[in-house]
Design a binder for these strands. Structure first.
Lengths: 171, 171
DNA sequence: AACTTTACCTTGGTCGGCCAATGAATGGGT
DNA sequence: ACCCATTCATTGGCCGACCAAGGTAAAGTT
């Protein structure tokens, strides 16, 4: 009922209600989407799909880890990580082997082949960052980071499964 | 070669290189993901999946439109929209019919049934926005919107397929 | 009028990502 | 020792989103 007669929105509002009702939410979606596409382009040269680079970076960083490590670090669903790894394994970027210390766990590590990409990926990531922030002065960048962190906090709280700051000190 | 010997990263840096090399990029991914999950939860009650709500909002707003309209408004890939519509049609939220004026086009409109959700969806969207921005004062919110817009601009430029303000005078 | 380009949408395939449910191994209670 | 709860990982199903390619109809050219 609230619905305007189809033929009559001569006014043709440029702004969708979505943008009015939730400017930030809307902006976040759009930025994320564009950012992902940009990442995809930047990564096209290195045979990685957007999302995979973070996983690889973690492996390059920490060597052999078990899947749980990745799941917690990337904050992804277990099944997502499993599938990503299967694909990365098939493309030869990653190797998996059973953990001798725990027969239900799996150890994951980057292959030597993949290490060749390390530099390229970090360069791509860096240039992406630069591109993203073009035209923002240092103060603005800091502020953006701060605000995003706050928002993340909020959403994290809502989700209620946010990272209980990893014990870390570790064993 | 930068790779530390696997067994030796005793230091175990808490921050992944990704976060150091691209704090904002990293934050954007995370925030987007959390935001999407939150949206999913908020929408769970209304039988819509995250992403669909924006499409529906557009339909509620503008009545019957052709698919191209949606594609441009949501800035999505045509195939994405086609598939979303197929699903929305099957769940009875949307109806499609050929455009009498242009035999290759299709007109899409929200079903009456779906209109019942209109209010609920907007409420959900609004509360999501509020949740996202909890603890940010008005000035911060404004600033966040401004910064995100700038970033969007940047990424849009990169992508190079951003909405060339439809005027289309174009060529 | 005939031909070529352009626009509109669909299909098929691939990825990341989620949830729910399942199998295997570990660990804790009693 | 036994059983039950946890943890680790996988599978299957589904959705959003992309790209590439294809088919049909409308414009624009000649």
């Amino acid at each position: 009922m609230t619905r305007a007669t189809p033929a009559e929105d001569a006014c043709t509002n440029a702004l969708p209600t979505a943008a009015l009702g939730g400017p930030v939410s809307h902006a976040v979606s759009r930025v994320a989407r564009l950012h992902r596409i940009a990442a995809g382009k930047a990564l096209k040269g290195v045979d990685l799909y957007p999302g995979q680079e973070l996983l690889m970076m973690h492996l390059w960083d920490r060597g052999a880890v078990r899947q749980t490590e990745l799941i917690r670090a990337l904050e992804l669903d277990p099944s997502t990580v499993t599938k990503m790894l299967q694909r990365l394994e098939q493309t030869g970027h990653v190797r998996r082997r059973p953990d001798p210390a725990d027969r239900r766990a799996v150890l994951v590590e980057a292959t030597d082949q993949s290490c060749a990409l390390h530099t390229a990926v970090e360069a791509a990531w860096g240039s992406l960052e630069e591109h993203t922030l073009a035209g923002l002065d240092p103060a603005e960048r800091t502020e953006l980071v701060r605000l995003l962190a706050k928002v993340e906090e909020n959403l994290c709280r809502e989700t209620e499964d946010c990272p209980d700051r990893r014990g870390a000190a570790s064993a």
